[in-house]
Nucleic acid binder design. Structure first.
Lengths: 156, 156
DNA sequence: ATGAAAGCTCAACTGAGGTTTAGATCAAGC
DNA sequence: GCTTGATCTAAACCTCAGTTGAGCTTTCAT
């Protein structure tokens, strides 16, 4: 076959809706791999369209690029992910979302119990004294809360 | 005046579980206010323990510091938030969490429809072609709200 | 063979939510 | 008074998920 089974970065960008700069970034992060022309330009396989699509979907489901890279690493590199691959992954994602929903519902319950009680006491408040830390998120080293069982505020 | 009502930054940190650096950061962001000793050290009111606690709780519910500052600005500065204050805030939080849960449940449904179909086609996939973009926030890092803890740096 | 379009690299920047570091000063116990 | 630990400021640094820009090079259609 001719070289039409390889696509340039701009076409991959157009097909996926992702910016060219983002595709270079994904390559740098090891999410996708590129061949190179003699002149040094990237050329991608058509299967990479689906790989990039998977990145977008998984991102929307809350996975970090690092986690996505982990999933993609278990996928065959040179072919389109098939139904079995996707079933395995989507089942895992399903469980993940279920856990998120459950965490939020627990929060909701605690909040309901708190409305009107004004109980912002660290010692007693169910919202504060939680194990699951429902929505901890974001970048950078976080100070880990809790574990000061000895001497927490009682009186305000 | 041995029995003081004012507490030093280290004590506020210890009582809330927040790092001293974070408390200074919150002060710089206008979330809390500090008095100063003649020597220039910060001294906080005991009510600030609850203000900081509120910051932590609201963060767990997904509010940004800017949003939290907005809520705190409407609270009385010099006293502990009372039941009425908390009722107003927690009602708003309740609606917010309900929306998050609804978004995740829609995602879950779409994912359920996709399991096994291998349909990572951008044209058709309901997971990819969504209007709500479930919990996408801001132009920078994208993260879904909800549990992403797991491997936060644990440093001594 | 040419000229526009697309590609290349590398570095710097964004913004949220902080932490780390350096060097100096303050507060308090003995 | 001395020493020790807590605190001060300011600026630099960190992650994540990219974007932007400068300055060149390659590719492709004519």
């Amino acid at each position: 076959m001719h070289r039409t089974d390889l696509i340039a970065i701009g076409e991959l960008a157009a097909r996926t809706g992702v910016a060219v700069s983002a595709i270079r970034f994904y390559e740098a992060k090891g999410l996708i791999a590129a061949l190179r022309t003699r002149g040094g330009q990237r050329r991608f396989l058509r299967a990479d369209i689906r790989r990039v699509s998977f990145v977008l979907i998984a991102q929307q489901l809350g996975l970090s690029l690092e986690e996505i890279a982990g999933e993609l690493a278990r996928l065959p590199a040179e072919r389109t992910p098939n139904a079995a691959d996707w079933a395995r992954i989507s089942t895992a994602l399903h469980a993940r979302i279920a856990a998120q929903i459950a965490a939020l519902e627990r929060t909701q319950q605690l909040l309901g119990a708190c409305i009107g009680c004004g109980c912002l006491s660290l010692k007693k408040c169910g919202l504060y004294n939680r194990e699951d830390k429902a929505a901890q998120r974001g970048a950078g080293p976080r100070y880990l809360m809790g574990d000061r069982s000895g001497e927490i505020a009682e009186r305000a």
